[in-house]
Every structure is written in C-alpha cells, then in structure tokens.
Amino acid sequence: MDLENQKRVKEFYDQYGADQLVVLVGAAEGEAGGLAAETVALGDPTFAGCLAGVSLKLPCYHICEPEIKEEIDEAVYDEQISMMEMVLDVDDICDEMNAIREQVAEA
C-alpha cells in the first residue's frame, strides 16, 4: 500500500478509532486487495510505511464484495461500478479479502 495512504489511514485511526472505521479498497487484483487489507489490519508486510509492525485490525472490504454492494444504491452502483464488476475477477478478490479477515479474526 502506498506510503502516503498508510499515513492517512493511521491518522483516521487515531482520530476516529477502530470501531468507527471501515477501509474500502478498489484494487484491480485479488493479490493487491489482499495486500491492502493485510496492511491496514495486520501491518505493512513490506515494512516500508508507517504501518510496518502496527496491527490496526481495521475491517477492510473491496468495493465489489457483496457486503458492500448491498449497502450502495443500485443505480449509483450501476453507473459507477458495474463496468469494473464485469472486468474484475470478483471471486478471486472475495477469496483474498476473506482470507485476510479470517486471519485477523484468529489473531
């Protein structure tokens, strides 16, 4: 995850606390989505950013996951996201995101 984004997530965490935050990602691949989720939940695996060794345990979802899709107005989703939903490997993304959330739950 981009170092600047890590910094911003950390600032929001400090300001609002873990209970008030959900991190939403729009990564094009499962692996990249999983890495972002890992960074904001378990810490930066590349040890480059401010979240290196910092476990915020923030819930993280991809915009194409069903839990999020349900929350969004259908017309808006169709106008903004449906094209990407057709393009992305949504199953792979969901698997990666679920795997990280399970790891966080077990941690």
Partner: peptide, 29 residues
C-alpha cells in the same frame, strides 16, 4: 509486481463498456 496486465485491463474495461452500451455481446468480450 502485482499490478496485473495494464493494457489488457484497459481493453477489458473498454469491452465491458461496449457490453453496457449494447455494442457487443458479453460472450464476445
């Protein structure tokens, strides 16, 4: 590097928009 095939992702997006516009069938993506 985990960034995927960038041109292919762009072509997929253009094709998906074509499907949404009815210019191509989803099976022809």
């Amino acid at each position: 590097a985990g960034a995927g095939d960038v041109p292919e992702a762009n072509f997929k997006m253009i094709a998906a928009l074509g499907v949404k516009k009815g210019a191509i069938e989803k099976k022809d993506l």
